[in-house]
């Protein structure tokens, strides 16, 4: 895919070219929205809104990483929605499990090659991380998602959040410290493959 050619076509109003870009980036954008919002429906709304907004403001794109540009749009959409929710808090209509936790685990998140025990462990880990991320402020959450989940470097994260690299560095360190405190001794409970994964990576 010649990304630049598609972007230029889309800038000239070629919706089909833009939709090819959407198909290429929708997983990345949805992941960012899901980690920011913590629930699937809100993430879908934010993702769709971000792509619509991106198409309408495509002429303001002046080169650079298109992925970072899209991530900035979806992150800002999530900020807006989270701010709106803070002003007008609502009660979720999602069913609750026995521990009063909202049942997450959408079907597309499940890995069918896993055993039921592994699925349960992964579900628990995912729920714990989500809760810990939710405890962070949106600005800290955005940085830790961009760097540790999306795998961006500090420069890209800085471009997405439009903050200096020093701020990224500071926010990331503080966010990791809070997550460490939040997750506690969870990693002793992790399956072997996660422990190995952790030890293999610097």
């Amino acid at each position: 895919m010649d990304e630049m050619a598609l972007i230029q076509s889309a800038q000239r109003g070629d919706l089909e070219a833009f939709n090819r870009l959407v198909l290429h980036y929708q997983d990345v954008i949805f992941t960012q929205a899901y980690r920011m919002m913590g629930e699937s429906e809100a993430a879908e709304d934010a993702t769709q809104e971000a792509f619509i907004s991106a198409y309408r403001s495509l002429r303001t794109y002046r080169g650079g990483s298109f992925k970072a540009w899209l991530l900035r749009i979806v992150t800002n959409a999530c900020y807006d929605e989270l701010r709106r929710r803070k002003r007008h808090p609502t009660t979720s209509l999602q069913p609750l499990d026995g521990d009063d936790d909202e049942i997450e685990t959408p079907r597309w998140l499940r890995d069918h090659s896993e055993s039921p025990e592994e699925q349960t462990e992964r579900h628990e880990l995912g729920t714990a991380i989500r809760h810990c991320l939710d405890d962070l402020s949106p600005e800290f959450r955005a940085v830790v998602i961009l760097v540790d989940i999306q795998g961006m470097d500090y420069g890209e994260a800085s471009a997405v959040t439009q903050t200096p690299i020093g701020t990224i560095k500071s926010r990331l360190a503080r966010a990791r410290m809070r997550l460490r405190d939040c997750l506690g001794g969870l990693w002793e409970l992790l399956p072997a493959k996660y422990r190995l994964f952790i030890e293999d990576r610097p």
Binding site: V22, I149, L183, L190
Partner: peptide, 25 residues
């Protein structure tokens, strides 16, 4: 501790979009 925390976060899979977000005219 920070390395483990970072590892846990990085173990989280990239999600697949539940549907296509292509735009209609």
């Amino acid at each position: 501790d920070l390395q483990r925390t970072r590892g846990l976060l990085r173990s989280q899979p990239m999600l697949r979009a539940p549907r296509n977000f292509t735009l209609t005219p």
